[in-house]
Design a protein around this nucleic acid. Structure first.
Lengths: 343, 343
DNA sequence: GCGCAGTTCTGCAACGTTTCAGACTGTCCG
DNA sequence: CGGACAGTCTGAAACGTTGCAGAACTGCGC
């Protein structure tokens, strides 16, 4: 407009080969003089039909996932892959009980969604899937309409529980994170176990039941403690309640390493000697190494990477049949489990 | 278009009071039938001139900041305030040595930028400031053109160093995180100290020098170890090198609690008794509480909250004079510091 | 019956880009 | 000397909204 042209300016920024270096130079110089900072990204997005951002939806509101090494590791895989393609990560605000007419998901200017470990009844699931965008679910829930990346939680839990049973423990207890979005905290009965909206926890409990049935023991006699979150602090509180209620407990299967570490802390506070008096199995394999914690390893970094891969791949446009990526897990036996004393 | 109208549909979604409930209901129903998921956010953004996202730029590439409790705490304050206003957080990809013509910052569809702890020569600084958008710098660098939220690093460091000197330590050593983006790791001389592009580290070193000068000691005799990052692991390595080089060291001022914890670990590994043989002061006050670590507390959560506040406030449009928010810090004396034995 | 107010709906314009097809210039080759 | 071709640049159209001014309709009171 100042010098000469309208859409040539666009080329000056985006296609240097489409115009003479001299003119390009002049345009950029003039632009700076006038205070024009380059093409407006919003308009560019509209024109191109792309935003260059991947929406990330977590079960918990924003900063909390960062306290969980599991989520951080997953995020690492996700971020690396996204950064490779120059994609930004957009953390969408809002929680599970979002009103259905909310704009938070519907109005998010992203090219696709990563839905991480949501509860079955999370409103945001439906909202995200309704968008004409690709989406990838990580961990839960497993839906037929969308790509899925996760593990065989039921099988993995059965392995963990089986490990304890094999050692000779007759009634291991379970330390779980939240089963539902609004549930209480404390010991949970069979109804609550089956009614869990957190598919990961539900599946793992089923796996525990499988393992118990395998050796002919009663699942409904196993104590399951629902902790407030997947954290050392919550695990400590939960384990205390558990051990208060059933002091004879010889083994605990914690659904995360953080919970396991909390359980270990509680056990020590109660004067127990580990692992002699109490065997502990964790889950995740993030915090495990230096702690000598027996745990189930799951490839969180891979989850993030594959989810990003899958989402980026889906950006092409043509819809493809949803794929379920089930990643392998394995039991890592370290020092925190042993046979019961009287076993 | 199907039933009746063009822009009435817009009202159906955004202004329910502008049309009869009956028609609205019908529009929404038809929309669902046709697979229309509501107004396209990208076009809406263009029209409104708003994206509803705040861009966050970290010094390190994406997942690493999440390993730092300091950054996570800051993020918590930021996220809470942003969520209050329904703003998303967009983590912009790219690192300090981004080419100047990169689209990563220039093309980010956001309403403003949070620039966290960048080095003086970080390309993204200029790119972000060139955008006609509000921006808030946290921690560093302190620029006159932009809002700033941070602390008096120089003064706080002088207090920490002064604390050690007051206890009688004659030549405390310093454990710092990176001074430059590409620098080496190890002991640094005076030239490197002054040439630090990480303003936070530079200021703190100046504060240390102030404290030394105050009691008439020579700053250039103080050993400064540059660690690879602000982490326990890097602190441990750095402290080992420091103590190997100068076994007589009686006190260490670490620029973060993580580094301090690493130093403590290294000291224990070398058979030192704490705090008798080695006093340690940390910085941040995040990891401090349960560890009995003497530290400088700084309000990270507040930083995030105020930065968000300031940024949201700047969205109004009319440019305002940049403000510098300097938050208070204070020394928290716990068990990790004491007078030197022969002092 | 007429103006007035209120409700409900519509059309126009504009947000700022990028893509695409072409216009124009000049060069090279037959 | 004409035509093909490469190199530069331009104009029109479209991306899908929303704000605004106003049109159409409905009552209501006088």
């Amino acid at each position: 407009m100042l010098g000469v042209s309208p859409s040539t300016v666009s080329n000056a920024y985006n296609r240097p080969d489409q115009l003479s270096p001299a003119l390009r130079e002049q345009i950029l110089k003039t632009a700076e003089a006038v205070g024009y900072a380059g093409p407006d990204p919003i308009a560019r997005n509209l024109r191109r039909g792309r935003t260059g951002a991947l929406g990330v939806v977590f079960s918990e509101p924003l900063p909390y996932p960062f306290d969980d090494p599991t989520a951080v590791t997953m995020l690492q895989g996700l971020a690396e892959r996204a950064a490779d393609e120059q994609f930004a990560l957009m953390f969408v605000p809002g929680s599970a009980d979002l009103p259905a007419h909310s704009n938070s998901i519907r109005g998010a200017a992203v090219d696709g969604f990563i839905l991480h470990s949501l509860h079955d009844d999370d409103t945001r699931l439906k909202l995200a899937i309704a968008r004409p965008l690709p989406a990838v679910v990580i961990d839960s829930p497993r839906l037929t309409e969308v790509d899925f990346v996760g593990i065989d939680d039921r099988g993995a839990a059965a392995v963990a529980m089986g490990h304890l049973l094999e050692l000779g423990h007759r009634s291991p207890a379970v330390l779980s994170f939240r089963l539902t979005g609004h549930g209480h905290v404390g010991l949970v009965d069979e109804t609550e176990r089956r009614g869990a909206t957190a598919a990961v926890a539900r599946e793992r409990l089923a796996g525990c039941a499988d393992a118990m049935a395998e050796v002919g023991l009663h699942w409904d006699e196993v104590l399951v403690e629902e902790c407030a979150s997947s954290s050392v602090a919550a695990g400590r509180v939960g384990a205390h309640e558990l051990l208060e209620r059933a002091p004879a407990t010889t083994a605990i299967f914690a659904f995360s390493d953080l919970l396991a570490l909390g359980a270990r802390q509680a056990a020590l506070e109660r004067g127990l000697e580990l692992p002699r008096d109490l065997s502990i199995v964790g889950f995740d394999g993030c915090a495990g190494e230096p702690e000598g914690l027996t745990t189930i390893y799951q490839p969180e970094h891979e989850k993030g990477r594959i989810a990003a891969e899958r989402l980026l791949d889906g950006l092409g446009g043509r819809p493809r049949r949803p794929v379920q990526h089930i990643l392998p897990t394995h039991l890592v036996v370290r020092g925190s489990t042993t046979a019961p004393e009287n076993g």
